[in-house]
Design a protein around this nucleic acid. Structure first.
Lengths: 200, 200
DNA sequence: GTCGACATGACACATCGTGCCACAACGACG
DNA sequence: CGTCGTTGTGGCACGATGTGTCATGTCGAC
Protein backbone atom coordinates (compact mmCIF):
# COMPACT_ATOMS: atom_id res chain seq x y z
CA UNK A 1 0.00 0.00 0.00
CA UNK A 2 2.93 2.32 0.69
CA UNK A 3 1.30 4.99 2.83
CA UNK A 4 3.33 8.19 2.99
CA UNK A 5 3.43 10.21 6.17
CA UNK A 6 2.84 13.99 6.12
CA UNK A 7 6.46 14.44 7.09
CA UNK A 8 7.69 12.43 4.09
CA UNK A 9 5.41 14.36 1.75
CA UNK A 10 6.62 17.67 3.13
CA UNK A 11 10.27 16.67 2.70
CA UNK A 12 9.64 15.50 -0.85
CA UNK A 13 8.02 18.84 -1.65
CA UNK A 14 11.02 20.67 -0.21
CA UNK A 15 13.39 18.61 -2.34
CA UNK A 16 11.28 19.31 -5.42
CA UNK A 17 11.34 23.04 -4.71
CA UNK A 18 15.09 22.95 -4.18
CA UNK A 19 15.59 21.12 -7.46
CA UNK A 20 13.49 23.64 -9.38
CA UNK A 21 15.22 26.67 -7.89
CA UNK A 22 18.66 25.12 -8.34
CA UNK A 23 18.03 24.23 -11.99
CA UNK A 24 16.62 27.69 -12.69
CA UNK A 25 19.51 29.52 -11.03
CA UNK A 26 22.14 27.29 -12.62
CA UNK A 27 20.55 27.88 -16.02
CA UNK A 28 20.24 31.63 -15.50
CA UNK A 29 23.63 32.51 -14.11
CA UNK A 30 25.75 29.36 -14.22
CA UNK A 31 26.63 26.72 -11.67
CA UNK A 32 29.81 28.25 -10.27
CA UNK A 33 28.32 31.72 -10.14
CA UNK A 34 25.41 30.47 -8.04
CA UNK A 35 26.06 30.20 -4.31
CA UNK A 36 24.37 27.89 -1.88
CA UNK A 37 23.07 30.97 -0.09
CA UNK A 38 21.19 32.06 -3.22
CA UNK A 39 19.50 28.69 -3.67
CA UNK A 40 18.64 28.56 0.01
CA UNK A 41 17.24 32.10 -0.14
CA UNK A 42 15.11 31.24 -3.16
CA UNK A 43 13.71 28.27 -1.27
CA UNK A 44 13.24 30.34 1.90
CA UNK A 45 15.65 28.54 4.18
CA UNK A 46 19.03 29.06 5.78
CA UNK A 47 22.13 27.54 4.30
CA UNK A 48 22.37 25.26 7.32
CA UNK A 49 18.93 23.88 6.60
CA UNK A 50 19.82 23.58 2.92
CA UNK A 51 22.55 21.12 3.83
CA UNK A 52 20.08 19.16 5.93
CA UNK A 53 17.90 18.48 2.88
CA UNK A 54 20.66 17.83 0.32
CA UNK A 55 24.14 16.50 0.79
CA UNK A 56 25.87 19.22 -1.22
CA UNK A 57 25.36 21.92 -3.82
CA UNK A 58 25.32 19.41 -6.68
CA UNK A 59 22.57 17.33 -5.20
CA UNK A 60 20.18 20.28 -5.04
CA UNK A 61 19.57 19.90 -8.76
CA UNK A 62 19.01 16.13 -8.55
CA UNK A 63 17.11 16.06 -5.27
CA UNK A 64 13.77 15.42 -6.96
CA UNK A 65 14.98 12.59 -9.22
CA UNK A 66 15.73 10.28 -6.36
CA UNK A 67 12.20 8.95 -6.18
CA UNK A 68 11.56 8.64 -9.91
CA UNK A 69 13.20 5.28 -10.41
CA UNK A 70 11.00 3.04 -8.27
CA UNK A 71 8.30 3.30 -10.95
CA UNK A 72 10.70 1.87 -13.51
CA UNK A 73 11.29 -1.29 -11.53
CA UNK A 74 7.58 -1.60 -10.79
CA UNK A 75 6.84 -1.51 -14.51
CA UNK A 76 9.66 -3.93 -15.18
CA UNK A 77 8.18 -6.34 -12.66
CA UNK A 78 4.84 -6.03 -14.41
CA UNK A 79 6.45 -7.27 -17.63
CA UNK A 80 6.59 -10.72 -16.07
CA UNK A 81 9.49 -13.11 -15.60
CA UNK A 82 8.85 -14.96 -18.85
CA UNK A 83 10.22 -12.13 -20.99
CA UNK A 84 13.99 -11.86 -21.68
CA UNK A 85 15.85 -9.74 -19.09
CA UNK A 86 16.57 -6.90 -21.49
CA UNK A 87 12.94 -6.74 -22.59
CA UNK A 88 11.82 -6.50 -18.96
CA UNK A 89 14.05 -3.54 -18.24
CA UNK A 90 13.14 -1.82 -21.48
CA UNK A 91 9.49 -2.15 -20.56
CA UNK A 92 10.37 -0.38 -17.32
CA UNK A 93 12.20 2.57 -18.81
CA UNK A 94 9.25 3.35 -21.07
CA UNK A 95 7.63 4.65 -17.92
CA UNK A 96 10.55 7.00 -17.47
CA UNK A 97 10.20 8.06 -21.10
CA UNK A 98 6.55 8.94 -20.56
CA UNK A 99 7.38 10.94 -17.43
CA UNK A 100 10.16 12.83 -19.19
CA UNK A 101 7.77 13.79 -21.96
CA UNK A 102 5.66 15.70 -19.46
CA UNK A 103 8.11 18.57 -19.00
CA UNK A 104 10.28 18.57 -22.07
CA UNK A 105 11.42 22.16 -21.59
CA UNK A 106 12.85 21.43 -18.16
CA UNK A 107 14.72 18.43 -19.56
CA UNK A 108 16.28 20.59 -22.26
CA UNK A 109 17.32 23.23 -19.76
CA UNK A 110 18.73 20.54 -17.56
CA UNK A 111 20.70 19.08 -20.44
CA UNK A 112 22.18 22.47 -21.27
CA UNK A 113 23.29 22.90 -17.68
CA UNK A 114 24.84 19.41 -17.60
CA UNK A 115 26.59 20.15 -20.87
CA UNK A 116 28.37 23.16 -19.43
CA UNK A 117 29.30 21.76 -16.03
CA UNK A 118 31.42 18.61 -15.93
CA UNK A 119 30.88 18.28 -12.19
CA UNK A 120 27.11 18.11 -12.63
CA UNK A 121 27.47 15.77 -15.60
CA UNK A 122 29.56 13.49 -13.42
CA UNK A 123 26.91 13.52 -10.75
CA UNK A 124 24.29 12.64 -13.34
CA UNK A 125 26.35 9.71 -14.56
CA UNK A 126 26.84 8.46 -11.02
CA UNK A 127 23.09 8.51 -10.52
CA UNK A 128 22.61 6.51 -13.71
CA UNK A 129 25.14 3.98 -12.44
CA UNK A 130 23.15 3.56 -9.24
CA UNK A 131 20.04 2.95 -11.34
CA UNK A 132 21.94 0.38 -13.37
CA UNK A 133 23.00 -1.41 -10.21
CA UNK A 134 19.45 -1.38 -8.88
CA UNK A 135 18.23 -2.82 -12.17
CA UNK A 136 20.84 -5.55 -11.96
CA UNK A 137 19.78 -6.43 -8.43
CA UNK A 138 16.17 -6.48 -9.55
CA UNK A 139 16.93 -9.00 -12.28
CA UNK A 140 18.98 -11.17 -9.96
CA UNK A 141 16.13 -11.16 -7.48
CA UNK A 142 14.01 -12.53 -10.30
CA UNK A 143 16.43 -15.40 -10.77
CA UNK A 144 18.52 -14.09 -13.64
CA UNK A 145 22.16 -15.18 -13.75
CA UNK A 146 24.49 -12.57 -12.23
CA UNK A 147 26.62 -11.86 -15.31
CA UNK A 148 23.58 -11.82 -17.59
CA UNK A 149 21.78 -9.42 -15.26
CA UNK A 150 24.74 -7.06 -15.17
CA UNK A 151 25.12 -7.02 -18.92
CA UNK A 152 21.40 -6.54 -19.50
CA UNK A 153 21.33 -3.61 -17.07
CA UNK A 154 24.34 -2.07 -18.80
CA UNK A 155 22.76 -2.49 -22.21
CA UNK A 156 19.50 -0.96 -21.03
CA UNK A 157 21.32 2.11 -19.77
CA UNK A 158 23.19 2.41 -23.07
CA UNK A 159 19.93 2.21 -25.01
CA UNK A 160 18.32 4.78 -22.72
CA UNK A 161 21.22 7.18 -23.05
CA UNK A 162 21.35 6.91 -26.84
CA UNK A 163 17.58 7.37 -27.16
CA UNK A 164 17.68 10.31 -24.76
CA UNK A 165 20.53 11.88 -26.72
CA UNK A 166 18.54 11.67 -29.96
CA UNK A 167 15.46 13.01 -28.21
CA UNK A 168 17.34 16.05 -26.94
CA UNK A 169 18.83 16.51 -30.41
CA UNK A 170 15.30 17.02 -31.78
CA UNK A 171 14.48 19.44 -28.93
CA UNK A 172 12.54 16.87 -26.92
CA UNK A 173 9.54 16.46 -29.17
CA UNK A 174 6.73 15.19 -26.91
CA UNK A 175 6.26 11.46 -27.19
CA UNK A 176 9.28 10.90 -29.39
CA UNK A 177 11.46 9.52 -26.60
CA UNK A 178 9.49 6.30 -26.44
CA UNK A 179 9.81 5.83 -30.19
CA UNK A 180 13.55 6.44 -30.01
CA UNK A 181 13.79 3.70 -27.40
CA UNK A 182 12.26 1.23 -29.83
CA UNK A 183 14.40 2.51 -32.70
CA UNK A 184 17.66 2.14 -30.81
CA UNK A 185 16.72 -1.26 -29.45
CA UNK A 186 15.95 -2.32 -33.01
CA UNK A 187 19.41 -1.22 -34.18
CA UNK A 188 21.23 -3.37 -31.66
CA UNK A 189 21.17 -6.69 -33.58
CA UNK A 190 22.70 -5.01 -36.60
CA UNK A 191 25.48 -3.57 -34.48
CA UNK A 192 26.45 -6.74 -32.69
CA UNK A 193 25.76 -9.34 -35.36
CA UNK A 194 29.06 -9.26 -37.23
CA UNK A 195 31.92 -8.31 -34.89
CA UNK A 196 31.30 -10.66 -32.00
CA UNK A 197 33.83 -12.99 -30.42
CA UNK A 198 36.85 -13.41 -32.63
CA UNK A 199 37.88 -15.92 -29.98
CA UNK A 200 41.51 -16.00 -31.10
CA UNK B 1 56.93 12.48 -34.83
CA UNK B 2 55.47 13.84 -31.60
CA UNK B 3 58.60 15.16 -29.90
CA UNK B 4 58.03 15.94 -26.22
CA UNK B 5 59.76 18.89 -24.65
CA UNK B 6 61.58 18.51 -21.31
CA UNK B 7 58.95 20.74 -19.77
CA UNK B 8 56.14 18.44 -20.91
CA UNK B 9 57.96 15.38 -19.64
CA UNK B 10 58.59 17.00 -16.27
CA UNK B 11 54.93 17.96 -15.91
CA UNK B 12 53.81 14.46 -16.86
CA UNK B 13 56.13 13.01 -14.22
CA UNK B 14 54.70 15.38 -11.62
CA UNK B 15 51.17 14.33 -12.51
CA UNK B 16 52.14 10.67 -12.26
CA UNK B 17 53.68 11.22 -8.83
CA UNK B 18 50.59 13.09 -7.68
CA UNK B 19 48.35 10.28 -8.89
CA UNK B 20 50.39 7.64 -7.06
CA UNK B 21 50.49 9.56 -3.79
CA UNK B 22 46.80 10.45 -4.02
CA UNK B 23 45.72 6.86 -4.67
CA UNK B 24 47.93 5.58 -1.86
CA UNK B 25 46.68 8.11 0.66
CA UNK B 26 43.04 7.68 -0.36
CA UNK B 27 43.42 3.91 0.00
CA UNK B 28 45.21 4.16 3.34
CA UNK B 29 43.07 6.67 5.18
CA UNK B 30 40.08 7.44 2.99
CA UNK B 31 39.30 10.25 0.56
CA UNK B 32 37.57 12.64 2.94
CA UNK B 33 40.13 12.09 5.67
CA UNK B 34 42.95 13.02 3.30
CA UNK B 35 43.60 16.74 2.91
CA UNK B 36 45.13 18.44 -0.09
CA UNK B 37 47.97 19.52 2.18
CA UNK B 38 48.87 15.90 2.86
CA UNK B 39 49.00 14.97 -0.84
CA UNK B 40 51.01 18.08 -1.60
CA UNK B 41 53.42 17.30 1.23
CA UNK B 42 53.88 13.73 -0.02
CA UNK B 43 54.74 15.10 -3.45
CA UNK B 44 57.00 17.79 -1.98
CA UNK B 45 55.08 20.85 -3.03
CA UNK B 46 52.90 23.54 -1.52
CA UNK B 47 49.13 23.38 -1.74
CA UNK B 48 49.24 26.37 -4.03
CA UNK B 49 51.46 24.50 -6.46
CA UNK B 50 49.27 21.41 -6.10
CA UNK B 51 46.36 23.34 -7.59
CA UNK B 52 48.57 24.47 -10.44
CA UNK B 53 49.10 20.86 -11.54
CA UNK B 54 45.59 19.51 -10.97
CA UNK B 55 42.25 21.24 -11.09
CA UNK B 56 40.99 19.92 -7.77
CA UNK B 57 41.47 17.22 -5.16
CA UNK B 58 39.59 14.63 -7.22
CA UNK B 59 41.76 15.09 -10.26
CA UNK B 60 44.93 14.24 -8.35
CA UNK B 61 43.99 10.57 -8.54
CA UNK B 62 43.19 10.68 -12.26
CA UNK B 63 45.95 13.03 -13.35
CA UNK B 64 48.00 10.23 -14.93
CA UNK B 65 45.15 8.64 -16.90
CA UNK B 66 44.65 11.60 -19.15
CA UNK B 67 47.20 10.45 -21.69
CA UNK B 68 46.25 6.76 -21.79
CA UNK B 69 43.44 6.96 -24.33
CA UNK B 70 45.23 8.11 -27.46
CA UNK B 71 46.67 4.61 -27.84
CA UNK B 72 43.17 3.18 -28.01
CA UNK B 73 42.18 5.27 -31.00
CA UNK B 74 45.50 4.59 -32.68
CA UNK B 75 44.84 0.85 -32.39
CA UNK B 76 41.26 1.34 -33.56
CA UNK B 77 42.53 3.15 -36.63
CA UNK B 78 44.88 0.26 -37.31
CA UNK B 79 41.88 -2.07 -37.48
CA UNK B 80 41.02 -0.52 -40.81
CA UNK B 81 37.82 1.05 -42.07
CA UNK B 82 36.52 -2.16 -43.62
CA UNK B 83 35.64 -3.68 -40.22
CA UNK B 84 32.28 -2.89 -38.57
CA UNK B 85 32.40 0.17 -36.27
CA UNK B 86 31.98 -1.85 -33.08
CA UNK B 87 34.77 -4.23 -34.08
CA UNK B 88 37.11 -1.29 -34.71
CA UNK B 89 36.58 0.15 -31.27
CA UNK B 90 36.85 -3.25 -29.60
CA UNK B 91 40.17 -3.74 -31.30
CA UNK B 92 41.24 -0.44 -29.75
CA UNK B 93 40.23 -1.18 -26.18
CA UNK B 94 42.25 -4.40 -26.23
CA UNK B 95 45.26 -2.12 -25.97
CA UNK B 96 43.80 -0.65 -22.82
CA UNK B 97 43.21 -4.16 -21.50
CA UNK B 98 46.84 -5.06 -22.06
CA UNK B 99 48.01 -1.88 -20.29
CA UNK B 100 45.69 -2.51 -17.34
CA UNK B 101 47.10 -6.01 -16.94
CA UNK B 102 50.53 -4.50 -16.22
CA UNK B 103 49.65 -3.22 -12.77
CA UNK B 104 46.70 -5.25 -11.61
CA UNK B 105 47.24 -4.47 -7.93
CA UNK B 106 46.97 -0.75 -8.50
CA UNK B 107 43.75 -1.26 -10.46
CA UNK B 108 42.25 -3.25 -7.59
CA UNK B 109 43.24 -0.60 -5.05
CA UNK B 110 41.81 2.05 -7.31
CA UNK B 111 38.57 0.14 -7.67
CA UNK B 112 38.22 -0.18 -3.89
CA UNK B 113 38.69 3.56 -3.51
CA UNK B 114 36.12 4.29 -6.22
CA UNK B 115 33.72 1.87 -4.57
CA UNK B 116 33.78 3.78 -1.32
CA UNK B 117 33.67 7.33 -2.67
CA UNK B 118 30.75 8.31 -4.88
CA UNK B 119 32.43 11.59 -5.78
CA UNK B 120 35.46 9.79 -7.20
CA UNK B 121 33.25 7.24 -8.92
CA UNK B 122 31.38 10.10 -10.56
CA UNK B 123 34.65 11.57 -11.76
CA UNK B 124 35.64 8.23 -13.19
CA UNK B 125 32.35 7.93 -15.06
CA UNK B 126 32.74 11.42 -16.47
CA UNK B 127 36.15 10.47 -17.81
CA UNK B 128 34.67 7.38 -19.44
CA UNK B 129 32.02 9.56 -21.05
CA UNK B 130 34.71 11.78 -22.53
CA UNK B 131 36.38 8.68 -23.95
CA UNK B 132 33.07 7.57 -25.40
CA UNK B 133 32.61 10.93 -27.08
CA UNK B 134 36.13 10.83 -28.49
CA UNK B 135 35.45 7.33 -29.84
CA UNK B 136 32.27 8.57 -31.47
CA UNK B 137 34.09 11.46 -33.11
CA UNK B 138 36.76 9.06 -34.31
CA UNK B 139 34.18 6.87 -36.04
CA UNK B 140 32.45 9.84 -37.60
CA UNK B 141 35.78 11.06 -38.92
CA UNK B 142 36.05 7.68 -40.61
CA UNK B 143 32.74 8.24 -42.34
CA UNK B 144 30.43 6.32 -40.02
CA UNK B 145 26.86 7.61 -39.73
CA UNK B 146 26.39 9.84 -36.67
CA UNK B 147 23.74 7.78 -34.90
CA UNK B 148 25.53 4.54 -35.63
CA UNK B 149 28.82 5.96 -34.33
CA UNK B 150 27.20 7.11 -31.11
CA UNK B 151 25.54 3.77 -30.49
CA UNK B 152 28.71 1.82 -31.28
CA UNK B 153 30.73 4.00 -28.89
CA UNK B 154 28.13 3.49 -26.17
CA UNK B 155 28.10 -0.26 -26.71
CA UNK B 156 31.89 -0.42 -26.59
CA UNK B 157 31.92 1.36 -23.25
CA UNK B 158 29.26 -1.01 -21.91
CA UNK B 159 31.29 -4.02 -23.02
CA UNK B 160 34.45 -2.55 -21.49
CA UNK B 161 32.75 -1.84 -18.20
CA UNK B 162 31.18 -5.28 -17.94
CA UNK B 163 34.47 -7.00 -18.81
CA UNK B 164 36.33 -4.80 -16.34
CA UNK B 165 33.79 -5.61 -13.64
CA UNK B 166 34.25 -9.34 -14.15
CA UNK B 167 38.03 -8.90 -14.19
CA UNK B 168 38.00 -7.07 -10.87
CA UNK B 169 35.66 -9.75 -9.50
CA UNK B 170 38.38 -12.34 -10.11
CA UNK B 171 41.01 -10.07 -8.51
CA UNK B 172 42.42 -8.87 -11.80
CA UNK B 173 44.04 -12.08 -12.99
CA UNK B 174 46.77 -11.00 -15.43
CA UNK B 175 45.66 -11.35 -19.03
CA UNK B 176 42.09 -12.25 -18.18
CA UNK B 177 40.70 -8.82 -19.05
CA UNK B 178 41.25 -9.34 -22.75
CA UNK B 179 39.47 -12.67 -22.62
CA UNK B 180 36.55 -11.13 -20.75
CA UNK B 181 36.24 -8.55 -23.51
CA UNK B 182 35.78 -11.33 -26.05
CA UNK B 183 33.41 -13.21 -23.76
CA UNK B 184 31.14 -10.24 -23.18
CA UNK B 185 31.16 -9.26 -26.84
CA UNK B 186 30.14 -12.81 -27.64
CA UNK B 187 27.19 -12.64 -25.27
CA UNK B 188 25.69 -9.57 -26.92
CA UNK B 189 23.82 -11.28 -29.78
CA UNK B 190 22.06 -13.56 -27.32
CA UNK B 191 21.00 -10.57 -25.24
CA UNK B 192 19.60 -8.48 -28.04
CA UNK B 193 18.23 -11.15 -30.36
CA UNK B 194 14.78 -11.62 -28.87
CA UNK B 195 13.47 -8.40 -27.28
CA UNK B 196 14.19 -5.93 -30.03
CA UNK B 197 11.75 -3.51 -31.56
CA UNK B 198 8.21 -4.43 -30.64
CA UNK B 199 7.29 -1.61 -32.97
CA UNK B 200 3.79 -1.25 -31.51
C1' DG C 1 -0.42 22.89 29.84
C1' DT C 2 3.57 19.91 29.52
C1' DC C 3 6.50 16.91 27.37
C1' DG C 4 9.26 14.87 23.66
C1' DA C 5 10.45 14.38 18.81
C1' DC C 6 11.67 16.87 14.97
C1' DA C 7 12.78 20.95 11.94
C1' DT C 8 15.17 25.07 11.74
C1' DG C 9 18.50 28.86 12.64
C1' DA C 10 22.97 30.93 14.33
C1' DC C 11 27.63 30.60 15.04
C1' DA C 12 32.25 28.69 14.87
C1' DC C 13 35.25 25.99 12.33
C1' DA C 14 38.08 23.05 8.93
C1' DT C 15 38.77 22.52 4.26
C1' DC C 16 38.72 23.71 -0.61
C1' DG C 17 40.03 26.48 -4.40
C1' DT C 18 41.59 31.08 -6.41
C1' DG C 19 43.58 35.83 -7.02
C1' DC C 20 47.35 38.39 -6.20
C1' DC C 21 52.01 39.44 -5.13
C1' DA C 22 56.82 38.07 -4.27
C1' DC C 23 60.85 35.50 -5.10
C1' DA C 24 64.14 32.44 -7.52
C1' DA C 25 66.11 30.16 -11.63
C1' DC C 26 67.31 30.67 -16.29
C1' DG C 27 68.23 32.17 -20.95
C1' DA C 28 68.31 36.21 -24.36
C1' DC C 29 69.99 40.44 -25.40
C1' DG C 30 72.44 44.83 -25.23
C1' DC D 1 78.14 42.36 -16.64
C1' DG D 2 73.46 43.94 -15.99
C1' DT D 3 68.66 43.93 -17.34
C1' DC D 4 64.66 41.98 -18.98
C1' DG D 5 61.09 38.37 -19.75
C1' DT D 6 59.55 33.68 -18.93
C1' DT D 7 58.53 29.90 -15.96
C1' DG D 8 57.81 27.59 -11.68
C1' DT D 9 57.04 28.09 -7.01
C1' DG D 10 55.51 29.74 -2.23
C1' DG D 11 52.85 32.91 0.92
C1' DC D 12 48.84 35.20 2.15
C1' DA D 13 44.19 36.65 2.10
C1' DC D 14 39.76 35.70 0.72
C1' DG D 15 35.14 33.71 -0.74
C1' DA D 16 32.72 29.50 -0.74
C1' DT D 17 31.58 24.78 0.76
C1' DG D 18 30.22 21.66 4.24
C1' DT D 19 29.82 20.13 9.37
C1' DG D 20 29.49 20.12 14.57
C1' DT D 21 27.20 22.15 18.22
C1' DC D 22 23.96 24.59 20.72
C1' DA D 23 19.62 27.20 21.02
C1' DT D 24 14.99 27.99 19.52
C1' DG D 25 10.58 27.00 17.56
C1' DT D 26 6.74 23.88 16.04
C1' DC D 27 3.51 20.33 16.49
C1' DG D 28 1.10 16.36 18.03
C1' DA D 29 0.27 13.14 22.17
C1' DC D 30 -1.16 12.88 26.57
Amino acid sequence: MERTTPRERRQAATRRALAEHALRLFAEQGYEATTVAEIADAADMSTRTFFRHVRDKDEAMFAADEDAFADVLRAAAAAGAHAPPLARLLHGVRVLAAAAGEDAEAKCARERVLEENPALRARDLAQQLRWQQQSEQFLRAQGVDADEASLAAGLTLTIWREAYRRWIAVSAVPGALGEFLDTVAGELPGQVAVPGARSR
